[in-house]
Nucleic acid binder design. Structure first.
Lengths: 139, 139
DNA sequence: TCCGGAAGTTAGACAAAGTCTAGATTATTG
DNA sequence: CAATAATCTAGACTTTGTCTAACTTCCGGA
């Protein structure tokens, strides 16, 4: 997704590539997420999509985000107890979370090494590893 | 806290040691958490504490858990999007989360090494590092 | 002992995120 | 064009957590 122009057409292409039927609403939601490359909550996605005139309902925003998750188009960030954030960057990476401001930034997974994790039971697979560094201002 | 008998008296002692005035309700809540050494949600804490007869209100459960957090008696686990869990184990450790069942288990931080994390801005301090391994059943 | 304030607790109203339902729209296919 | 499947929608509902204002308990000093 580097150097990509986030046109609606390209969004449709992206959706098709993930087995998602590119409807108007889905294209708008994908566009909101990918053109910003930021971590957005469902609320924020909805606000962005509906800025000019109402384009999608709350139910559709939630349904669509869930669909994108299943199809591995985006990633879910469970970091703030009050709401989930969605991350259009699905490459392996970790997060720094500023507790006070809520600001989040990425750490490329390449530079980070995690060793010594215990082996999993045979019938289990790793769905993902979330590493979150919580930081705050010195007093 | 190894080999400790989780009597109410010992709970009171523990609370005093963390600058917390040991009231009846606080002792009961601490007892619920520490005698089990499990990750409990606010809901679960309340259910446990009020099994026999009503002992504490919802407001007190939430107030008390927040107080325990501030005084670093327990730790907050943000793992499930729908609710926060509280962990009586404050020694450095990480978590394995079974997505389907919600079951959580600990990984001692001693055996795990994390290297290559970027340096923080000068005015910032690390509040904590959360490492969560999300696993699920093979199909 | 009595008074008064501080600390703690409470019921219940409230807020916000997210889910669900049942009907309306749109697209697709024979 | 009709039938069917897929998608979208408003709004009711659920759940977790917060807030408020009143009530209780505790404690130190006169």
């Amino acid at each position: 997704m580097k150097n990509m122009h986030y046109t609606r057409d390209n969004m449709a292409e992206l959706l098709r590539g993930h087995d998602i039927n590119p409807t108007h609403q889905r294209i708008e939601i994908a566009h909101a997420l990918f053109s910003r490359q930021e971590h957005l909550s469902a609320d924020q996605v909805m606000a962005i999509v509906n800025t000019r005139h109402s384009e999608t309902s709350k139910a559709t925003v939630y349904n669509t985000l869930k669909l994108f998750l299943e199809k591995r188009l985006i990633r879910e960030l469970i970091v703030d107890p009050s709401k989930v954030f969605y991350d259009p960057n699905t490459t392996p990476h970790h997060h720094i979370y500023e507790i006070d401001s809520g600001k989040m930034s990425d750490i490329d997974a390449d530079q980070v090494k995690i060793t010594g994790l215990p082996p999993l039971p045979d019938n289990m697979v790793t769905e993902g590893i979330d590493l979150i560094v919580r930081i705050r201002n010195k007093n």
